[in-house]
Design a protein around this nucleic acid. Sequence first.
DNA 1: CGGCATCCATTTTGATACTG
DNA 2: CAGTATCAAAATGGATGCCG
Lengths: 221, 221
Amino acid sequence: MDQRTYNQYCATARTLDLVGERWTLLLIRELLTGPKRFGDLQKSLRGMGTGLLAARLKHLEREGLASRTTLPPPARTPAYALTEAGAELGPAVLALSRWGAKWAMGERREDESFHPGWAVLGMEAFFDADAAKGVRVVYEFRVGDEVFHARIADGTLTARHGPAQEPDAVLETSDDVLVEVTEGRRTLAELVRSGAVTVSGDKQAARRLCTFFRKPPPATR
Amino acid sequence: MDQRTYNQYCATARTLDLVGERWTLLLIRELLTGPKRFGDLQKSLRGMGTGLLAARLKHLEREGLASRTTLPPPARTPAYALTEAGAELGPAVLALSRWGAKWAMGERREDESFHPGWAVLGMEAFFDADAAKGVRVVYEFRVGDEVFHARIADGTLTARHGPAQEPDAVLETSDDVLVEVTEGRRTLAELVRSGAVTVSGDKQAARRLCTFFRKPPPATR
DNA sequence: CGGCATCCATTTTGATACTG
DNA sequence: CAGTATCAAAATGGATGCCG
């Protein structure tokens, strides 16, 4: 497998030796929001063959970036989680994401897949620590049949797969509407009024959500 | 060429569609320190065939991340420079670099190549804006037959290829010694005493250099 | 030197069929 | 559902030759 190396004594090159192959950083992106099962990863990584997925997971495991665990009962099914080293790739993935949001996004193409987790993780990318100074709030997002939550505390935002313990506010919507939000075509307030987004819990908190992000305007290359 | 896409409406995936192929991010790393000629790039990217290098440059050009320019007289030779969009990949490259410095560096392997520019760019990665608040200083580094400079101003460090206009201090050393520094085996002060590094110009400024960086201790995966 | 084209051996990938 | 096995297609690398 991966014996192909750049052979450079350079931190960037050494990193890319480990995670620079096709699919690997996207696989890590998936795991950044929490442990996932093989099948879930497969669904999120359309086009990646099962053989390659298995090989990449094995590689990450061997290199100490991920570990194969068994979900606690009653699930008891195997799952993959990032190690501390793997999780620390988060800032690099988010940096790539910030660049893409500014220089490469635009409209969703016809055949592009979309998973709400990507948008939720994107919240971390544009989180504005100053705007959220001293704030402590938990949001739950239900999009289609997926559930995520975002916890804002100590000037950081943590986005994770799965329900929150005690969400302050719960926002419910569809995949398609979420795409419209990330495309910037609709504002959250507008969508709540129109009924495309349902809010329950602390409505004040929900309204404050969009004040925690600062995203530069998209630019063209 | 590159019509292979992840087909995901996700900023990270879109970015990797553009720069995720083999060599591309390392090519951008080379250009981050300033325009380079074809041959220089080739020397820094040992193992990359000329055909592939040409193809990647064309790709970056087509996508608006780099542009083919002609160096000002008397050089008058073609060179490649990053556009604004390309240069803004700097933070992502540095994020990968920071991860690698912590989790993947260790000793230099027997067959690994090394170019001083990588170490100089690495200074940007661990630059500590707080430590350099209000500081304005320019360093020139002469390593082997390469010259770089680093300009600290307005709380940022800019590392570039080529000589500085008016360096406050000039540090001169060899490739091998620079490797020892980046490996953390030797401190700068020690090397100056031993004569392995020569300082000219403002020696006070030179001594302050290492106070501008904050690098976490390496960890093992 | 700069840069492209061509040929070829080796890897990597993508897609699908298959097994426990 | 988790993962292996298999095979065709594509990407890579290395060498080499060419041309301005």
